[in-house]
């Protein structure tokens, strides 16, 4: 959950000022740069710098348990990773989780947003409770659902019809992925619904009313008026949530630890570095993971024609 806000476009209040004297503009330019410098330096220090380090490490065969055997291997780690079925299997699982969770979050989140938009009573209670899944630690959500799906101590099997009481959700790939997705969707749908609610508030009531007067059904109003006007909100929400879902790690770690083919690319990378101490291969996977995020971001932006300017506060 590392995408929280996509704040507003800049009102160009500076334009109200009198035309600057040029030295004042220079001074302002200087001050601005000074003020943003710490932020820029810190951000680059904590990401770009380690990423370059990863790029360098990924070119060696380097395991911490055999530090004397370190050697330069060029692109060998990338070749091994990209030709390994395990890498592609985790990629498929990750993309699958991403598509499924984002889809359901969008649909359920939209329903929630409409309810919250219309509801008149208990508004405060609903808005407060919707923040609870958002605030809860992902690890806790993972545990809660893992135990809920447990055959020995949970309740899901007893509540669901057509499911045997001792059914083992974590014994096979699809049931286990289902449980993981439930935890993920539960926790992040509220955030999605708040984003959509903000978008819904932008849709002009007059337009909806006008459509109604023209005899449009509820369904037509939804598809012809409301959704097109929320387009920007929906696209930004999809972009942020998709990239966040692609990084899925916590729920998998807690609920299956990657067993029964539920491993994500993030989890695979983590295991190479932290459990196998294969710093070289782990770094290569880190770089590949980073590139995958870039590709997915690019695809979503192109495919859905997301207006990045809106997301980048430039209006």
């Amino acid at each position: 959950m590392s995408t929280a806000t996509a704040p507003a476009p800049a009102p160009a209040e500076k334009k109200k000022d009198k035309p600057h004297q040029s030295d004042r503009a220079v001074a302002e330019n200087k001050l601005g740069m000074k003020l943003v410098a710490p932020a820029l330096i810190v951000m680059l220090f904590v990401t770009a710098f380690p990423m370059l380090q990863a790029l360098w490490l990924s070119l060696s065969n380097y395991a911490l348990t055999a530090p004397d055997d370190r050697s330069f291997v060029g692109a060998q780690n990338y070749v091994t990773a990209l030709s390994d079925p395990l890498f592609w299997r985790t990629m498929l699982v990750t993309v699958g989780i991403m598509v499924v969770t984002v889809f359901f979050e969008l649909v359920i989140g939209f329903v929630f947003a409409i309810v919250m938009h219309r509801v008149v009573f208990a508004r405060g209670i609903i808005r407060t409770s919707i923040l609870i899944p958002y605030g809860i630690i992902t690890v806790v959500s993972g545990f809660a659902w893992q135990f809920a799906f447990s055959g020995t101590n949970g309740f899901v099997n007893y509540w669901l019809p057509f499911v045997e009481d001792n059914f083992n959700w974590f014994g096979e790939q699809f049931p286990a992925l289902f449980a993981i997705c439930v935890s993920e969707i539960w926790k992040t749908t509220p955030f999605m619904s708040l984003l959509l609610l903000a978008g819904l508030a932008q849709v002009s009531e007059d337009m909806v009313e006008a459509a109604k007067v023209d005899g449009a059904t509820w369904w037509q109003r939804l598809w012809k008026v409301i959704l097109p006007n929320m387009r920007a909100a929906i696209m930004v929400a999809i972009l942020f949530r998709a990239l966040d879902a692609f990084r899925i790690f916590d729920n998998i770690f807690v609920m299956t630890a990657g067993a029964v083919n539920t491993e994500s690319v993030s989890f695979l990378t983590y295991r190479q570095v932290i459990e196998q101490f294969q710093i070289g291969m782990g770094s290569a996977l880190s770089v590949l993971l980073f590139l995958s995020v870039l590709v997915i971001a690019f695809l979503i932006v192109k495919l859905f024609r997301v207006d990045l300017a809106a997301a980048r506060q430039e209006g």
Binding site: S2, T3, V36, A39, L40, M43, L44, V46, T47, P50, M51, Q53, A54, L57, F240, L243, D244, F246, R247, F249, S266, F267, T269, Y270, Q272, V273, I274, I279, G282, S283, S286, V287, L289, F290, S292, V293, A297, A311, R312, Q313, E314
Partner: peptide, 22 residues
């Protein structure tokens, strides 16, 4: 600055684990 912040918000944190650990 804004673009950098946006890009970094989407950064896969697991990618940082290896180099930072080292």
């Amino acid at each position: 600055v804004l673009t950098t912040a946006l890009a970094i918000a989407m950064f896969p944190v697991v990618s940082l684990v290896g180099p930072l650990f080292d």
